[in-house]
Simulated scan of single mutants.
Amino acid sequence: MKIAIGSDHGGYNLKEAIKKHLEEKSIEYKDFGTNGIESVDYPEFGMKVAEAVKAGEYDRGIVCCGTGIGISISANKVPGIRCAVVSDTFSAEMSRAHNNANVLALGERIIGQGLALKIVDVWLDKEFEGGRHERRVGKIGDIEKKYSK
């Protein structure tokens, strides 16, 4: 599995912890920035990760900012991206199983590092269940198509 990862300054420290965690699990990743805690704009980094996932260069993406909200909204503007802001392991599991989320958003100022790493593990390990959920995820794609014309 290949992971695209990125953050703004508010999620930088969490992103660095996740990178170390991925390395320990021998999971390949690419860091799309930012590279420090100097103030930057989250849309740039949410878009970079989302575009890499959309292009098929990476299987999934992980984005971090202070709350996870702004960067997830930015990632979700890329057609085909289903980015879920998650603060607990059950939501992480369901975002994959039922929603086929292909990008995970985490808020460094919302959750602790230990919980964040557990969320990452659950999210990476869970597969999409398909079935009745396939139809629903397809309807999300239909909404994208309707408004991208």
Rank of each mutant, 00 (worst) to 15 (best):
V53N: 06
A50W: 13
V49Y: 11
D59Y: 12
E129S: 14
A84Q: 01
G114L: 13
G114H: 08
E44R: 15
Y58C: 00
K15D: 04
P43T: 13
A92T: 10
Y58P: 00
N102Y: 14
V85P: 12
A50T: 11
T67R: 06
I140F: 00
G46T: 10
A4G: 03
L124C: 08
G10V: 08
A4C: 07
R82E: 05
G107D: 01
P43K: 12
K15I: 11
S74T: 07
M94P: 09
N102A: 10
I119E: 02
S72N: 05
H133W: 03
V103A: 05
G130A: 15
N76E: 10
G107M: 06
L14W: 04
K149D: 11
I3Y: 08
I110C: 10
G114E: 14
G68V: 04
E144G: 08
V53H: 02
I71K: 03
C83G: 06
G107T: 06
V40R: 11
A84L: 01
E108L: 07
H9S: 06
G80N: 03
L22R: 04
S91E: 02
K15T: 09
E127G: 15
V78W: 07
H133E: 07
D88S: 12
G61D: 06
S74R: 01
S7T: 01
S91R: 07
Y42E: 10
S72A: 12
V49K: 03
S39M: 12
G6Q: 01
N76R: 01
F90L: 15
L14P: 15
K145Y: 00
D142C: 05
Q113E: 15
N100F: 05
T34F: 04
G56H: 05
A101M: 07
D142K: 15
A52R: 07
G130F: 14
V63E: 03
C65W: 04
I37N: 01
A75Q: 04
M1S: 12
D88Y: 05
V122E: 12
Y58E: 00
C64G: 06
N13V: 10
I18V: 14
C65G: 09
G33W: 07
M1D: 02
I3G: 05
V78E: 02
V137Q: 05
A50Q: 09
N13R: 09
I62A: 04
S74F: 08
G11S: 02
G10T: 06
F45C: 10
G61K: 02
G107R: 07
C65T: 09
E23F: 03
K77G: 08
G138M: 13
L117F: 00
V86T: 09
I71A: 03
G56S: 09
G61I: 08
T67L: 10
W123G: 07
K139W: 15
M94R: 14
E51F: 12
M47S: 15
L22W: 00
F128L: 13
K54W: 03
G56R: 02
R96Q: 09
K145C: 07
T67I: 03
G68T: 01
G70K: 04
I69K: 07
V85D: 06
R60M: 10
I37S: 02
G80W: 04
F90D: 14
L117K: 09
